[in-house]
Design a protein around this nucleic acid. Structure first.
Lengths: 343, 343
DNA sequence: AATTAGCACTCTCGTCTTGCGAGTGCTAAT
DNA sequence: ATTAGCACTCGCAAGACGAGAGTGCTAATT
């Protein structure tokens, strides 16, 4: 559907105005917009047309117009021009990300915090799904008479640690045995194959000695499971309480969505590459049907990896949000790629 | 202040009724309470007296009575009899805690989750302040060409780990040097003394070699800081949105309180031993003046250690909350003590 | 043909009024 | 000391009403 330039201008004005102040906007107010040198009557005609086409609605007869989801969609697809954020903002994002540049997880957590802070909204960052990653190396550190820490290093360079506790004295010799046999069996194995059956056959192959292993194997499995799944970091969910434009029900739905890890993973794992916007009912998840989700994938070494996303009211400042989100995703891509390259 | 038995009975009835249904309660409704075989007029006289004494108020002339904070206080101090939770509940708490019985932190996190779940409220659990703890041992695990993990073990048996990244190839020899020199310098030192000045003099004492250390030393300081401070685990803060008896402002204040770590630490670190209740304005923190805070300390080896706490509306089911909180604290005390004893 | 001025119309919102009902305090009787 | 009875108070919901904002339509203008 193509729309005459002046109508586009009017549509944009309504939407931007509504985004800014949250109130229906009428023909008279639009007259004062720059670049629109027509009378309110003309604008009324255009508004009526845009309303008929489904881009706008009036809450009631004597109110101004408010964009529909279709209106937002058209605006986002055809009108919106995304610019890079201001230099100040760019520098701020870069400096904060660089200072957490020790591990990919840290970068991702920080990026969520930055986004939720700058945009006063809920932000989500996911790690790349580690499904294809393999065990690179497992190490043990004794931390007490009965306790040890296990450190898993994956082929993608991720590091996960777990404490475990045995009901017998742990000796360095025993840890050596654990270390040697585990690494022999696991090195190069896909993380996803380190599961219950594997643990059982592994322990069984050691006969008596295998009876000493269950706690340790639990820790191994646990660490592999965490490393192979996608992790979801959420920031700023408390901000939902401060979003006046969000009614309580939407806020609850969003919280419910965030609390349901599998729902998050399903959605964020299947989001298209690049930037994507789901507005209201377009959302795959019913819990978000009254909200908007803006997502952007970041890349590692030019390969699509994980997702950064924002969840907020449908009435969101898409321009600002997209601009900051895309810039953050780009920066995250660069920083993590650099980390990975350096190994 | 002592109150005649019948008045106590009436006060208790008003409070319990109000806690249950959230509406002001009048003399007629109280007539139907068991054990009160008097007319509504008599009850009215008693109510008037309790109101004059400050235990009750009426929202307006023609409404029933509602407890004041003083009323709750009297109820909690003089009327409430705490029983142990039902067996079902006890078993549930015990089983969930036992299954996370690998590390104290894990137990504490779980206890917060249990509390917030069972009582549908915000729960907080703090680790024992590690201020008096000392460095026991520090270990290193190489995780990549440029990255390593540092594992800090404290005298109290706590384990913290940190990743750090250097801008040069890490060799096993170098890690050995780090290990030997750091442990020599730090073993037995109070965690709180591992600070910036220490790091500087330490690095300086190595001359040229010291220039390679800043990333590693940052990680050490960071780990010590985390281990020496009290950690605060919060659960169920999203439930605030579902608490109908909590107005939005109180909810925000509570979230603000939870978000301010230093505020939490100050308050929860200074709470009296045993069980303690702050009702409304009694709260030391202004942010909680419209809420109630119920806290219980848990012990490790009979020494007061950390705190479990609940934050909710002033109109809370104190009976249920205290009963479950105390039982949980007791169980946590036992489980952690056992862990510590086993080392 | 497009634009505009003018106007009658519609509908929300805040204010005000009013009647109902719940709950009270007081008084006099028990 | 308790109770029955009664007048009184006050919040609340429902209805009335005017102001104001914004509309759509028509007829005039460019």
């Amino acid at each position: 559907m193509t729309i005459a330039p002046r109508k586009q201008k009017i549509l944009a004005a309504v939407i931007e105005n509504y985004i800014a102040c949250g109130e229906p906007i009428g023909s008279k107010a639009l007259m004062n917009e720059e670049g629109l040198n027509v009378s309110s009557a003309t604008i009324r005609n255009e508004l009526a047309d845009l309303t008929e086409k489904g881009f706008l609605v009036q809450p009631h007869t004597s109110a101004g117009r408010v964009p529909t989801e279709l209106g937002y969609r058209y605006y986002v697809d055809n009108i919106l021009k995304i610019k890079e954020p201001e230099d100040r903002v760019k520098r701020y994002i870069e400096s904060r990300l660089q200072s957490s540049c020790d591990a990919p997880e840290h970068i991702l957590k920080t990026s969520g915090e930055i986004l939720s802070e700058l945009l006063a909204t809920v932000a989500i960052a996911t790690t790349p799904p580690g499904e294809n990653a393999r065990v690179h190396r497992i190490k043990f550190v004794q931390t007490g008479r009965f306790t040890s820490m296990l450190v898993l290093i994956t082929s993608s360079g991720m590091v996960k640690s777990r404490l475990f506790r045995c009901d017998f004295d742990i000796t360095p010799e025993m840890l050596n045995v654990f270390d040697r046999s585990l690494n022999e069996a696991l090195a190069g194995r896909p993380l996803s194959s380190v599961n219950q059956p594997f643990a059982q056959t592994f322990a069984a192959s050691f006969g008596e000695l295998g009876l000493l292993m269950p706690d340790m194997l639990m820790a191994v499995m646990d660490a592999c499971a965490e490393a192979s799944g996608m992790n979801v970091y959420t920031s700023g969910s408390t901000r939902l309480l401060y979003q006046s434009e969000l009614d309580l029900n939407s806020a609850r739905s969003i919280l419910e969505f965030l609390g349901d890890n599998s729902e998050c993973e399903k959605l964020l794992g299947n989001v298209p590459d690049g930037t994507n916007i789901y507005i209201g009912r377009e959302n795959p998840s019913p819990l978000l049907r009254r909200s908007s989700l803006i997502s952007a994938r970041y890349n590692i070494e030019n390969q699509p990896a994980g997702t950064l996303a924002l969840i907020g009211s449908i009435r969101t400042d898409y321009k600002k949000a997209i601009s900051i989100l895309e810039f953050t995703a780009k920066t995250v891509s660069e920083l993590i790629s650099e980390l990975v390259r350096k190994g």
